[in-house]
Design a protein around this nucleic acid. Structure first.
Lengths: 125, 125
DNA sequence: CGGAATCCTCAGCGATACTG
DNA sequence: CAGTATCGCTGAGGATTCCG
């Protein structure tokens, strides 16, 4: 991509349209409900594992760990282990994570705003 | 939700935190890579089924249909059938869809912007 | 060309149990 | 309390085929 003899009517620069595979891969990893919900909740304040699990609700222990690892690996959250007993592990957003959080906020707002619209659309079928 | 004797340190109104189950359900439906990619591409211009399939790339016939139906059902896209032969079916964003599109745009921008950051984080890993 | 239905497979995910 | 590992299953999702 980058060359474009073929198409004509697309806007000059179309975001993910000219996405290199890496951008796509990242987009695909991030764009799932659990990851985004985690970003949203951790964005509110630093949280512990258990707090997060309870706050999100309906997420399994395994999925939470899995997504936390993924987000950490991509540098969106920071994992801090306090060597106490019982152990205390806290999760915080990195700069990148906070930037994403504003986007997710937008998505939450959108959901609230268009809730009536969506309900209506569903009724009409 | 709506009552909140328990918690204390959460910001006054925490978006999806006090999410009723319907908002959550919608969020979960929309927040998947295929749905968001469709929104992004259809947002660029009205597109036909085949165009979309090619533009997105890597999506199966089935998944595309499935997600298009879902988005239509939630009132995010409009499906227009031209009674010609061969058939011509076009998809366009509704007002709600366009609003969501701006959010997805933000997410695409974010991906581009923090791509280096993420690559770096992965290397340290 | 766009859609529906069928079959089949693999991995996403939940449940459970064990460690530090 | 947090994390890892294992097992087992359901169902998401790919490939294929037929229809309008």
């Amino acid at each position: 991509m980058g060359t474009r003899q073929e198409i004509s009517e697309l806007p000059p620069d179309a975001d993910l349209a000219r996405a290199d595979s890496l951008a796509r891969e990242i987009f695909a990893e991030i764009a799932n409900k659990w990851a985004l919900l985690i970003i949203e909740f951790v964005g509110q304040r630093t949280m512990r594992f258990g707090e997060l699990r309870d706050a999100i609700g309906g997420i399994s222990h395994k999925m939470l760990t899995q997504n936390l690892r993924m987000l950490e690996h991509n540098g969106l959250i920071t994992r801090t282990v306090h060597a106490t007993v019982p152990p205390r592990v806290e999760y915080t957003l990195t700069e990148a994570g906070q930037a994403l959080r504003t986007v997710v906020d937008g998505m939450c707002d959108w959901t609230q705003r268009f809730l009536p619209h969506i309900e209506a659309a569903r009724r009409d079928g």
